[in-house]
Design a protein around this nucleic acid. Structure first.
Length: 225
DNA sequence: GCGACAG
DNA sequence: ATCTTGTCGC
């Protein structure tokens, strides 16, 4: 699934329409032994950023490996094209891992996207990994109802055509739900189950929190402000 | 033209 | 995303 990252927004959208056909959704044969989180830290202005992947053991959730890289981000932020902005640097971070994680959570959407190819789905295809999208806010789809206000409470996220794209999931009581959707090679049930299982304490799943923290620390350490 | 809009 | 202190609620 190789392709150039150097595309115009128009070309990028066409590519998304074609790539989505290759996505596969199926249950995991067995629980993952490692779950990773991927994220990127950018300065207020400027294009230099730090991307990172942090791998945790499952179900213990102890950090066993991380890969951090810094570089230039060139593509602008355009709703629906986030993977073209963060993908290139994130791939470099993944290439620095000694072992491929069994599951990866991304800070963004999976298939809950206008063309069915959010950053988790796109990078799942590119990297050949099982991925889940976990966004803090909505991009596409409508929650069927308010999820129960308790840890694990969830409701389907539906497309305009009535298809279930994902779920709004409460990772703890009294907080805004997160938007979960399959990225690649995982079904919605598994995505919900594991997203919840790696969120023992905070709203944001531990792998993503770790990636966010580490990339931010590294960015400041490098003096990228 | 207007509103929506992951990070 | 990033910049930020205090503050509200359980």
């Amino acid at each position: 699934m190789r392709h150039s990252w150097d595309l115009t927004p128009k070309e990028a959208r066409v590519l998304q329409e074609n790539l989505k056909k290759h996505l596969r959704f199926s249950p995991l044969a067995r629980p993952p032994r490692t779950v990773a989180g991927a994220d990127i830290s950018l300065p207020r202005f400027g294009r230099r950023a730090v991307a990172g992947v942090v791998v945790l053991s499952y179900p213990e959730l102890e950090i066993i490996e991380e890969s951090l890289v810094d570089g230039e981000v060139t593509f602008p932020y355009v709703p629906g094209l986030l993977s073209f902005r963060e993908g290139p640097l994130l791939e470099r971070a993944f290439s620095g891992l000694r072992r491929k994680p069994d599951l990866v959570l991304f800070d963004g959407q999976g298939i809950a996207h206008p063309r069915g190819l959010g950053i988790a789905s796109h990078l799942g295809l590119r990297l050949g990994l099982r991925t889940v999208g976990c966004a803090k806010s909505r991009l596409w789809g409508v929650p069927l109802r308010e999820p129960p206000d308790k840890k694990g409470g969830w409701a389907p996220l539906q497309s305009p055509e009535g298809e279930t794209l994902g779920a709004v999931l409460r990772t703890r009581k009294g907080v805004k739900p997160v938007f979960i959707s399959s990225g690649h090679r995982v079904d919605l049930e598994g995505a919900i189950e594991y997203a919840l299982a790696v969120s023992p304490r905070y709203r944001i799943p531990e792998p993503i929190r770790a990636a966010h923290t580490r990339t931010n620390e590294e960015r400041l350490r490098l003096g990228i402000v």
